[in-house]
Write a protein that binds this DNA or RNA. Structure first.
Length: 438
DNA sequence: TCTGGGGTCCTAGGACCC
DNA sequence: TCTGGGGTCCTAGGACCC
């Protein structure tokens, strides 16, 4: 029914997302420097504009910038994922009304398919221009959730990303930029260094620079075949996308994860087997929960441990071990039992462990009924999968979070990461509700 | 003293087969 | 001395992303 419309994709990206979430409930921090820390309060993972302006880079260890933190009275927060996940869901719910198809790309960004939604160059077309529509999206999200966003638009994902980058960087765009027009694209591409392109990391950027390719424009004008030969298909596809030829499809049906990892750094070094064994049980429990949430089973389990690689004075040790299962499992008790076997195989005394984790892979659908492991004697003393039991566990924990756990995860959990500056669960916990005094 | 966590895709190379 | 060739599958590691 629609005559072929030129493709138009938008990338909506929240500004300094974690910081914006924290500021929502701390309006006194507006205009002041704010940063959010990684797990264990180790690194800076989100920065307000004021912090970026101080030259503090993404991902730096906190202790390296402590003097600046003190000097400029930067307010720090431990990460509060419950809050960010809830705010993310609210933003995405608002965005869904603006496009027939939407891909949630990460916790703070989404691609929207706006093909046929906006005006198509003809002045008599009654619909809004892409730029006006982008402004409407931006204003609506801000009003409905309090989160500021920028909107980039173009005929491909890579161009929408580039437009978003420019919309964030250049104030005169007012946070919205449409790169449908090739002449406007050229103007921008001539100004932007190649390392800013989505998918061009530091390694590839360096190699491109050595070949004399410095700007996005220079990259866009390379023959894709030559890029395929000197790099790989990814770079060749980026060149095509920069020229308006889509290689990356909008993926609006969220697929299950192919791999589920649960791991943490410890707040202090762990030397004893029992502590590690509790941590591993906890990680296996959480991984199994995620697995059941996406209705999958896993056929391979990996456990890894390591000492602190940043401290060469300590004796170093790191190792991983995997076990494959004859049949997929999603039963917490079974996955814990196997994880413990694996941990026992790689644990060595005499080391201060800094981190460990559990990884589930070879993930498939859970629809086939659990079968007895008639193949292996190795598995025979493990608990059978009990879907009904697991479902009950999940139901109770959804209603009363973290109320039920397997005993092996322990009670003291001295390995738990540090989080000394966590804000309350403003939107997810009754105790965290904001109190208003009149 | 203090350095996150969770993902995806691609490619080269080995194992194996005919 | 001379020791095929091509296909598939799997895995580890690299690179990148947020």
């Amino acid at each position: 029914m629609t005559t072929s419309q030129p493709p138009l994709l938008a990338l909506v990206d929240c500004n300094n997302f974690y910081v914006s979430c924290e500021r929502l409930f701390r309006p006194d921090l507006t205009g002041k420097p704010v940063a959010v820390l990684s797990n264990n309060d180790g690194c800076i993972v989100a920065r307000s504009q004021e912090v970026k302006d101080l030259g503090i880079k993404m991902g730096v260890p906190l202790y390296q910038v402590q003097p600046l933190v003190k000097q400029h009275q930067i307010t720090l927060f431990s990460s509060n994922y419950a809050l960010y996940a809830d705010m993310s869901a609210r933003v995405m719910a608002v965005l869904e009304a603006f496009a027939p198809r939407l891909e949630i790309y990460s916790i703070d960004e989404a691609f929207l398919d706006l093909t046929g939604v906006c005006r198509n160059g003809h002045p008599q077309d009654a619909r809004q221009t892409p730029t006006a529509y982008g402004q409407q999206i931006k204003q609506t999200v801000l009003r409905a959730t309090g989160i500021p966003v920028c909107v980039g638009m173009g005929p491909t994902k890579t161009l929408a990303k580039l437009a978003n980058h420019a919309a964030k960087k250049w104030p005169h765009t007012h946070g919205v930029l449409d790169l449908s027009n090739p002449r406007r694209r050229e103007k921008l591409m001539r100004l932007v260094p190649v390392k800013e392109v989505w998918g061009i990391g530091p390694r590839t950027a360096l190699k491109l620079n050595q070949l004399g390719i410095h700007t996005v424009w220079e990259l866009a004008n390379q023959p894709p075949q030559a890029m395929q030969a000197q790099f790989n298909r990814v770079v060749a596809d980026i060149v095509k996308e920069l020229n308006g030829n889509a290689c990356l499809a909008l993926d609006d049906i969220a697929a299950g994860k192919q791999q589920i990892v649960c791991s943490r750094s410890f707040s202090r070094r762990q030397t004893d087997y029992p502590a590690l064994s509790q941590a591993v049980a906890e990680f296996a429990s959480r991984a199994a929960e995620k697995l059941r949430q996406q209705h999958s089973t896993a056929r391979c389990i990996t456990v890894f441990v390591r000492t602190n690689p940043f401290n060469p004075q300590e004796p170093q040790y790191q190792r991983a071990a995997s076990q494959k299962l004859a049949h997929g499992s999603q039963d917490t008790r079974r996955l814990i039992a196997i994880s413990h076997h694996l941990l026992a195989a790689i644990f060595k005394t005499g080391y201060g462990y800094q981190k460990c984790g559990v990884q589930l892979s070879h993930i498939g659908p859970a629809d086939s009924p659990a079968q007895a492991d008639w193949l292996g004697s190795a598995d025979s003393n493990l608990p059978e999968d009990n879907p009904a039991l697991m479902q009950t566990l999940d139901t109770i924990n959804r209603r009363f979070p973290k109320s039920l756990s397997i005993a092996a995860t322990g009670l003291d959990q001295g390995w738990q990461p540090k989080a000394e500056r966590r804000s309350p669960g403003y939107t997810t916990d009754w105790q965290g509700l904001v109190k208003v005094r009149c």
